[in-house]
């Protein structure tokens, strides 16, 4: 599993969103790293779950949302940072061995 940079992950997520966003017609606006995916209707909560799985596959890390405010994990940029925070944790653990 290669180390994923934040910029690359954000780009991949935005690409994924354009391809997979809910198609009830609400997704025509531009998606940026600051887009709140739930507030703007880009994704329903089910869509968020699919997005989490996509990011986890991409980074190879499990994202722990237990102590995260929903307003944080529903925004593209901060969700990617969360994922990479967990990725960094994994790499640090591997390095220490």
């Amino acid at each position: 599993m290669s180390h994923v940079s934040e910029i690359a992950l954000v780009e991949a997520v935005i690409r994924w969103l354009y391809e997979n966003a809910e198609t009830n017609g609400s997704v025509k606006a531009e998606i940026t790293p600051d887009t709140d995916l739930i507030a703007t209707g880009v994704l329903t909560s089910r869509g968020i779950i699919e997005l989490l799985l996509f990011i986890e596959n991409r980074t190879g890390c499990r994202i722990d949302l237990t102590d995260v405010e929903p307003s944080e994990f529903s925004v593209v940029g901060s969700l990617c940072r969360l994922a990479l925070r967990d990725q960094d944790g994994v790499y640090q653990y591997v390095d220490n061995r």
């Binding site: 739930i38 507030a39 909560s45 968020i48 949302l65 102590d67 405010e69 929903p70 307003s71 529903s74």
Partner: peptide, 11 residues
């Protein structure tokens, strides 16, 4: 519950 929390209210 604020609108942003309604979809994931665990915390």
């Amino acid at each position: 519950l604020p609108e942003s929390v309604v979809k994931a209210p665990a915390k």
